[in-house]
Computed example of a mutant assay.
Amino acid sequence: MSDLTITPVTTKRERKAFVDLPFRLYKDDPHWIPPLKGEALGLITPEKNGWYSHAKVQLFLAREGGRVVGRISAHIDTLALTMPADQGFGPGVGQWGLMDAEREDIFVALLARAEAWLREQGMTRALGPISQSVWEEPGLLVKGFDHAPTIMMGHAKPEYQGWIERAGYEQVKQLFTYELDITQEFPPLVKRIIQSGEKNSRIVVREVDKSRFEEEAAIILAILNDAWSDNWGFVPLTPPEIKDVGVKLKPIVFNDLIRIAELDGRPVAFMITLPDLNEAIAPLNGSLLPFGWAKLLLWLRRPKVRTMRVPLMGVLKELQSSRMASQLAFMMIEYIRRASVERYGASRGEIGWILEDNQGMRSIADTLNTTVNKVYNIYGKAL
């Protein structure tokens, strides 16, 4: 008879055990990127993650024979509860994520414990995996196990898909990432669209100014919260989240990799590109000691990377159905492509994630001759 127990995480030591578990479970997976343990702890520590200002979270650990053999997070985003139900969240919808287990029976037991906690909080439906905010690492990897994820994208064991589906969950949404060879120029049609935009005196596509970080972040946030507001799963980013994300990402923010497009002097679109930090931290095995910090600081001075990731871009809703929207997008993508190749030595770009029903962004990706390289599923179940 199994001595499996599942208990809530209540101490710093248990949070550390929660973070440590994947290092053992994925130690033989060549495509798993060990996160910096300090960063991983920060994500599950309320005082260090602004998302907790509007979220209620319970972490659980599974133990067997005194060993930690599984983990899960059950959580409720109070802002998500206020969103329209037809956008995925809404009243009564809780989430789970950060889930790993040695075996399927442990996985199922953890899911049941998370579901019980959500029911105790009055939830009637569960979505997952969402680890933990929709802005962090949503979805379960179901395609693309043969290469490592880029910065802020998740990885998982292939068997998890079957485990989740056999537990009664149904797929509700797919997220795609697209890759492309950025050393190659874009197709002639895209070039003509860009050249036309460059002749339009109403359009200015500028670099951000990192010395005015908070001001530039506010501009991008305003466009983002408008541009994404009708998307499935949208929850507005809040000032505490922006502050914490800014602290975390500022070291890998470079002026020439983030662009703001202005129309008649008004900011209407943006594109954020990040050098793939995973390439730098992969050899560190989660620790900056004894010399990892020096290597990382040296890399951050001027990264030389293979891959650049575009995690976010957006155009104000009033322009989204216009030709102008795609023109601004192509202009920003091209200018950042040039900088990525010429100044950072990059050869590969990754765009995403992109929702399966975001036809505008998927059309832009298709026009650039990209290829879907990873697919993530989000699942749902009535409680």
Rank of each mutant, 00 (worst) to 15 (best):
E115T: 14
A126R: 04
M153V: 13
E115I: 14
L127H: 13
E136K: 11
S131R: 02
G122F: 04
G144A: 02
G139E: 05
L140S: 00
I130R: 00
E120G: 14
E120M: 07
L127S: 07
L118E: 03
G128L: 05
Q132R: 12
T150M: 05
R125N: 08
W135T: 14
M123S: 02
A148K: 11
R125A: 03
R113P: 04
V134A: 09
I130H: 04
F145E: 00
A116V: 08
E137I: 13
E137V: 12
W117D: 06
W117S: 05
H147K: 15
R125M: 09
G144M: 00
M123T: 10
P129K: 03
L118H: 05
E120Y: 01
D146Q: 10
P138F: 01
E115M: 10
W117F: 12
Q121L: 04
L141W: 00
G139L: 00
M152H: 13
V134C: 09
G144E: 01
L141T: 07
L127F: 11
H147C: 08
P138Q: 01
W117H: 11
H147V: 04
G139P: 02
D146L: 10
D146E: 13
A114I: 08
G144V: 06
I151C: 11
M123C: 15
G122L: 08
P129W: 06
K143N: 07
E120A: 14
M152Y: 13
E136D: 15
L141R: 05
L140H: 04
W117K: 11
H147I: 02
S131L: 08
S133E: 05
A148Q: 12
R125V: 09
M153Y: 04
K143P: 00
E120C: 08
G144R: 00
G144K: 03
G139M: 00
E137P: 02
L127P: 02
L141I: 10
P138I: 07
H147Y: 11
I130M: 10
L118C: 07
S133W: 00
K143C: 03
Q132V: 13
L141F: 01
G122E: 03
A126N: 09
T124L: 05
E137T: 15
S131I: 01
L118W: 03
G139C: 05
I151Q: 08
G139I: 10
G128I: 08
L127G: 01
F145A: 02
M153K: 13
I130A: 05
W117C: 09
M152P: 09
E137N: 12
R119G: 15
E137A: 07
T150P: 01
L118P: 06
W135A: 12
S131E: 04
L118T: 10
E137S: 09
P129C: 09
